[in-house]
Amino acid sequence: MINRLRTTNSVILLMGLFLIAIIIAPFIAPFDPNQVNMANRLKPVSLEHFLGTDHLGRDVFSRILAGAQTTVGTSFLVLAISLLLGVPIGLVSGYIGGRLDRILMRVVDAFMAFPDYIAAIILSGLLGPGIFNLIFAIVMVKWVGYARLARSTVLTEKQKDYILIAKVNGVGSMNILRRHMIPHVLGNVMVLATLDAGKIILMIASLSYIGLGAQPPTPEWGAMLNEAKAFFYNAPHLMLIPGLAIMVIVLIFNLFGDYLRDYYDVKNQNGGR
């Protein structure tokens, strides 16, 4: 089935559906995700509460919808900041080269030397729990990948005759970068970013699960998993549902990333592998 998902346009459809769901989430949520109702706690799946209620009697379906906004919104924010930080640094580093390039790339190497989860845990642990510290920590481990990719694309492009010709035509460096290079770089970077989106969602959920990210009562899938673990025997759906949500969303993003990669891969137009 996964292969069929990949080859058809259903990936785009799923992605589109999901994005729409995120945007309209507050309007279709049947309850306030933070509304506590102790008389109605740990209820199983029912018609009134599609996905049951949690240990404080909050509607799980509404919390999942709101959590999608937190989790996915945060991951988009992380991606955007990483791109804005990494891509310009990579561009400049690759295009100017020389000593500046060596210095910047040693900094990147230093960041890359740490396994990303460990670095993110240490950083957000040092800064203290909270969603903004979490964003900062993940950006710190993620921007280097984009800097590297942007740099390597620039290095390949720099060899091409059309860049040389733009140069011999007297076009300035800024214009060469902006008009002749960035479109190439962005294509590659977008593919990496979509493939990364799934990993970042997973990372945010993981860090929230161990208590470093979103704090209660913010609805966030990882944090929901964390809160639910005490009630696993009585209400297993409290853990299953956010877990499944994370799995599905990461799967969608990965498939979408694969699709984009194949789409941009000129050598592999048939999509065969």
Partner: peptide, 14 residues
């Protein structure tokens, strides 16, 4: 001004 050997690479593709 210059003219190079590789005409396919002479203009930025996009």
């Amino acid at each position: 001004s210059y003219i190079f050997q590789d005409y396919q690479g002479a203009f930025t593709p996009f």
